[in-house]
Design a protein around this nucleic acid. Structure first.
Lengths: 141, 141
DNA sequence: CTCGAATGATTGCAATTAGAACCGTTCTAG
DNA sequence: CTAGAACGGTTCTAATTGCAATCATTCGAG
C-alpha cells in the first residue's frame, strides 16, 4: 500500500511540475509578444482577459492575481491611454474598466500575435477540448 | 473563416487562463502546507523537486525558474540545515545539492502534507494520466 | 431604521522573481 | 596546444507580486 501511495505522490508531483512549466511557458510567450507592442507580460495578460467592460476585481480573478496587482496594471494601461476607469452603473464602490479605441485596437493586434506559435499548438483541437474539460474540473471556480 | 479563428482564439485564451489558474492554485496549496513547516512556497517546491542529488541548474529547470532564484532558495535551505552543496564528481564547475538527514525527513513530511487535499484530487487517476500525457506533449522539454 | 459585517478599490511595504553582468571551468574548432 | 565559445554558479539590481491596512460604499440581521 505504501508503494501505491508512493507512486501516486510521484505522479502528483510530476503533474504539478508540468502544469507549472506550461504556465511559465505561456507567460514567456505572452511576454515576448507583448514586448513587441511595448507592454509587459502582465499588461498583455490583462489585455487578453479584457474581453469587455469589467470590474477590477473581475480582472484580478481572470488574471489569477491580487486586486492590488490588477490596480497596478490598470494604472499602467490607463497611463498609456489604452484603458479608462468609468463609474460603475449601480455600484458606486466599483469601477468599470473600459478599453479606449486605441486599447481595443491594440488588443486585436495582441490576440493576433498570441495565436502565432501558441504553446498549445502541439495539441489537436479535440485534445485541447479534453484538456479544457479536465482543467475546468480541477480549478476551483 | 474569421469566426473559426475567433472561436479558436477564444478557446486558446480560456485554456491559458485555466492553466494559469491551476498553477496558482497549486502554488497556494504548497504555500499553505510549507508554511506549517516553516518554509516558503518556493522552498516547498524545491524540496518537492529534490527527488535526489542534483545540480543547481537541474533544480532550476524542475522549478521552472531562473538559476539565480534557485541559488537564493538553496541558500535558505542550506542555512536551515536541510541542504548541502557538495562538489560535483567529474565537473568542478557544478555543485551537487544533497539533502541532509533533516532535509530528507522534512521532505517526507512535506510530501505527506501535499498529498492531502491536492488540487488535483477532483480528477480520477486515469484522468490524471490523460492530463499528464497531454501536458507532456505541450511542454517543451 | 441602524449598526456591524462585507465588498471594491487603493496604498504602502516586504518578499519573491527575473535579467544582466561576472567569474571560474569545460568544451571544441583549428 | 590554444584561443574562443559555452556552461554552471553567484551576485547585484530592478521589476513584479502578494499581503496587510485603509477608506468609501453596500448589505443584512435584528
Amino acid at each position: 500500500m505504501t508503494d501505491v501511495r508512493e507512486t501516486q505522490s510521484q505522479a502528483d508531483r510530476e503533474l504539478c511540475g508540468l502544469i507549472n512549466g506550461l504556465a511559465k511557458q505561456i507567460e514567456a510567450h505572452v511576454r515576448s509578444r507583448a514586448a513587441t507592442l511595448g507592454l509587459t507580460a502582465s499588461q498583455g495578460v490583462a489585455l487578453r482577459e479584457l474581453t469587455g467592460p469589467m470590474t477590477l476585481r473581475e480582472l484580478a480573478e481572470r488574471m489569477s492575481c491580487e486586486p492590488s496587482n490588477a490596480t497596478f496594471v490598470a494604472d499602467r494601461l490607463e497611463e498609456q491611454g489604452y484603458l479608462e476607469r468609468h463609474p460603475h452603473p449601480g455600484n458606486r464602490r466599483a469601477k468599470q474598466l473600459v478599453l479606449t479605441p486605441a486599447g481595443a485596437e491594440l488588443r486585436e493586434r495582441l490576440l493576433g500575435l498570441l495565436s502565432e506559435d501558441s504553446p498549445l499548438a502541439p495539441l489537436a483541437p479535440e485534445e485541447q477540448d479534453t484538456l479544457q474539460r479536465l482543467l475546468a474540473r480541477a480549478v476551483v471556480r
